[in-house]
Design a protein around this nucleic acid. Sequence first.
DNA 1: ACAGTAACGGACGCTGCCGTCCGTTTAGCT
DNA 2: AGCTAAACGGACGGCAGCGTCCGTTACTGT
Lengths: 219, 219
Amino acid sequence: MTDRLPHTLRSDARDNRERILDAARAVFAAEGLTVPMREIARRAGVGPATLYRRYPTKEMLVTEAFTDQMRACQSIVDEGLADPDPWHGFCLVIEKICELHARDRGFTAAFMSTFPHAMDFAAIRAYSLTSVAELARRAKDAGRLRPDFVLDDLILMLMANSGIHASSPAARVAASRRFAALTLQAFHTSPASSPLPPAPRLVPGVSTHRRNPTGETDG
Amino acid sequence: MTDRLPHTLRSDARDNRERILDAARAVFAAEGLTVPMREIARRAGVGPATLYRRYPTKEMLVTEAFTDQMRACQSIVDEGLADPDPWHGFCLVIEKICELHARDRGFTAAFMSTFPHAMDFAAIRAYSLTSVAELARRAKDAGRLRPDFVLDDLILMLMANSGIHASSPAARVAASRRFAALTLQAFHTSPASSPLPPAPRLVPGVSTHRRNPTGETDG
DNA sequence: ACAGTAACGGACGCTGCCGTCCGTTTAGCT
DNA sequence: AGCTAAACGGACGGCAGCGTCCGTTACTGT
């Protein structure tokens, strides 16, 4: 067997890989993405070299560590989309995603593309966003979501949600929950609603804008 | 003259102090509070030792650099308080403070007490908050602000606002403006409004709670 | 003009993180 | 059991930011 390609990891290597991923997930959730690589290695009980061998860059590690979170995020959106009441589905999506982000400091940053380019799950992100756009369209048609809502508003609220800090994870989740509720109040149609300032352009690819009434330069 | 205390700075020292403060304000606004002290010294055209002599700790420099911003913040609140229409005043306060924070990355962090203890202008902050609380009370009495609004909601939105990032300052301001408008929609009374989850406890000193209907432990 | 001292800033040593090298260990196969 | 190569991890050099020391510069008051 001279030409066996290392498509399969040795048992100890596979074991270490798991431990690294577990440690990374735990510490990313608690501290965010800024933790030193060595700290993750330490918690995983491996040397730095082992960590770097498996994941030469932090971006790779992050991508791998958050793939399932990303999938969870997508299935939340799918659930919302499956809801017979689009506004109800929309609310669920907002609430659950906010909670997801509140529980995991790192995931927020990863989702927001703290790593600006080439995040592997950019595709999933884009797919989720278009799904939400569809859900939003339906909720608008049902007359429950304000007509001037655009997808960038969602990004905006997600960014805003990521700004919420608190002493404990529990407190952060509680704050985020209230924030989500307030956000939904803002998105809800209401006789008292007044026109909004122009929407920011935050997500270049997708768009719910059919038309852009203002000629404003956007950044 | 053996016992002259250095209550007065030498002319060059005073000059340097100004340049340091200017540089600090500029770079804090653009980059936030995380910039290295040396960077500020460099931009001010002084050596590191000079900077450290004048401001032994970054906290002191930040305090001094943002004192006027803090005062601006307070006068915004005073203006709002002086408005005959409390809801209108409330809106102005939210909008202007959000803009202030959007224009200055550093100020947000300073205001949010990134430096957890002993920020010198904690007093001003507290005063502003109680003023807003008063304004909120009036706006509630006028039936325009939702009755379950609490001061912590304001902190919450300010934190959230600080989470808004963008490629350019202009884009950030635009996004923040829309965010403020959405926030006000959420705070506005509306026949369609539904009850909110329990308020987080974010600002220990002041409170608009007269009673706390939920027995929830708050973090 | 000069003395005296306030103020300056280059240079230093420290710490923490980074990414890599290389001698050692150990799983996997016969 | 023994061989081989995969995998490991301690150790290294490099870099960036920190806060301080101390020899030099230049205001200020006589």
